[in-house]
Design a protein around this nucleic acid. Structure first.
Lengths: 321, 321
DNA sequence: AGAGCGTCTGCACATATGTGCATTCGACTT
DNA sequence: AAGTCGAATGCACATATGTGCAGACGCTCT
């Protein structure tokens, strides 16, 4: 069942309240008397209705796009841009939070029944997962794009929490990917990739309709989760520097020109190769913060995304540079 | 221009405010400081944003339809039903008002650029027109379905006000139909229908993508606008009674079984014949109040509508009877 | 029956939002 | 330059909405 343990009656009331409030502009007071309950209950009921996704609010830019920034990004880089307004003064953390919230809202309409969405993991995705609006879908699934365990931990807690938040929000089946983020030996990966249990996941990945990911910025001042979680050692870093890596998508690395060939680390990565990724019809990238700029430029050069959700300041920098 | 005399800057701010408020859940206070203005201005800005249709709020019934009423109506009568929740105790006038408000909201998504919508006129349509949400469309038009003038007045004020409200809300071109609601002599109609200026309108009607109308209930306790506005005289009423008429759509009459042949009054009516109307792909009917029930049954029998927007009580009566 | 537990309710209060009004600002007229 | 008008602003107040809390209610378990 999609409607877990929630009494059907409550949903019915919530639906009715939402209808009266949002479609008929009644005040909560009026709705309360109509439902024979107190105003405060109505307030809570409406909150519930929003939570379970009975109410969808869209903000549409008028046909004559105000935010020409989005258009210019589209022209220059061929991706659909969603520029999230955030004042420059905002702290980096808040900025990510706000971009993530918008991303979660934008994502809603993208995902629907009978679809498969692949998601990476990291601080960006974690933030997005915390702001997802519920939306009922059927026969849909969420699949993890790259492994999360490392020498220290299984990484289960972090990555799988992201996964399950997505699964819960959409009522989708969640397919974990229980492999390490990076293998010590590329041959291990090759062997493991032949296992049926793994191939099943790889097959699902291959059929996904949407991919959702943030960007890792290898050597930026604000290192991404992959770079501080004990996934890589000093030798690995040295190797990345030597390969002139500027960023990664789902633990697959690339250079400033978008190329990702002959980067030894990729043979050890559990993530989907960029060429495989680019077969997905919709590839949504969420970026927040100027420190991601080099990684973003590389990712754009690689043509890794079709849709970009980005904060205002970084969007401007992207165009200025 | 679609964006009349509104300074572009205001729209930009409104869009930004809407984004921050609806998509990032900021408080108006926070938005005010971000836009360097006062909280009250933000409140007004958001109101403006809603007015010009930057914000769209949808209430979606979950897949497992709560309101089985809609489904049952669909099964029994083959039309898409939208049941508007209204308590039974509500006065007839308020009821119409609330149904109209919901209708206006439901209508929004139906109409888009490059479309033509034909509309009737009457108290129901008038109410709907007063609650329309703005929506920017291009190359779209609104066409009047039936004439509005009578022996006393040209009817211009009333009908054309409805028309122009629709036109304004959608930024659509408005095509009036400057003929009497009923001709005294059917031959006058025949002759006039050959005039090029009239044929032009008839051509537009023929190509419309949506038709929107209420129902007239001929002999009900609450007579419709047509029946009190001096459009018909006592002889006409007698004739209608004799023809066993139960209602009308855009001044075209029909019987309880849905038939409309051999009703003399129809030869004098300026409205589109039911057979012509039924060629329109989407035909939306708005009904409020139990007194419309006989007219509604007849209209359903005639298969005149594809979508029905109706108040709860009347919907129940429809199923019960 | 009665204790234990979690959920739901309405109250009272804390916040957040809407709006009349007087004032200011700018564009345009005389 | 002064005058006129309308739009835009912020203040103060009126409404509307959100939420902590204590009590009520309906369970289960003993």
């Amino acid at each position: 069942m999609a409607t877990d343990g929630i009494p059907n009656e409550k949903v019915r009331d919530a639906l009715r309240a939402a209808h009266l409030y949002y479609l008929q502009d009644l005040t909560m007071e009026a709705i309360a008397s109509e439902l024979h309950t107190s105003r405060s209950s109505v307030s809570r009921l409406l909150g519930f209705a929003r939570d379970i996704g009975l109410v969808e609010i869209q903000v549409k830019s008028p046909a004559d796009r105000i935010s020409s920034v989005q258009d210019r990004i589209h022209e220059q880089h061929g991706v659909n841009a969603y520029v999230v307004p955030v004042p420059d003064s905002t702290a980096e953390v808040d900025r990510l939070e706000r971009v993530a919230m918008s991303a979660a809202r934008i994502l809603g309409p993208f995902f629907d029944s009978n679809m498969t969405m692949g998601i990476a993991w990291g601080s960006t995705l974690s933030a997005v997962s915390r702001h997802l609006q519920d939306k009922v879908t059927h026969n849909s699934q969420i699949v993890q794009l790259n492994g999360a365990s490392n020498a220290q931990t299984t990484g289960i807690g972090y990555a799988s929490e992201i996964m399950s938040r997505f699964g819960r929000a959409f009522g989708a089946y969640v397919q974990q990917f229980p492999v390490p983020a990076f293998f010590d030996d590329p041959r291990t990966k090759e062997v493991l990739w032949r296992e049926r249990s793994i191939r099943r996941v790889l097959e699902i990945q291959k059929r996904m309709d949407i991919a959702l990911f943030g960007l890792g910025s290898a050597l930026a001042d604000v290192p991404s989760h992959v770079y501080v979680g004990g996934y890589l050692d000093e030798a690995d870093f040295e190797q990345l520097r030597h390969s002139e890596v500027v960023g990664d998508v789902a633990t697959v690395f690339y250079r400033a020109d978008g190329s990702s060939d002959d980067i030894p680390m990729n043979a050890r990565s559990s993530g989907p190769s960029l060429s495989l990724l680019s077969k997905v019809s919709r590839r949504v990238c969420v970026v927040s913060g100027r420190s991601k700029l080099p990684a973003l430029r590389g990712a754009l050069a690689a043509g890794v995304m079709t849709d970009l959700i980005i904060d205002e300041a970084t969007a401007h920098s992207l165009l200025d540079g």
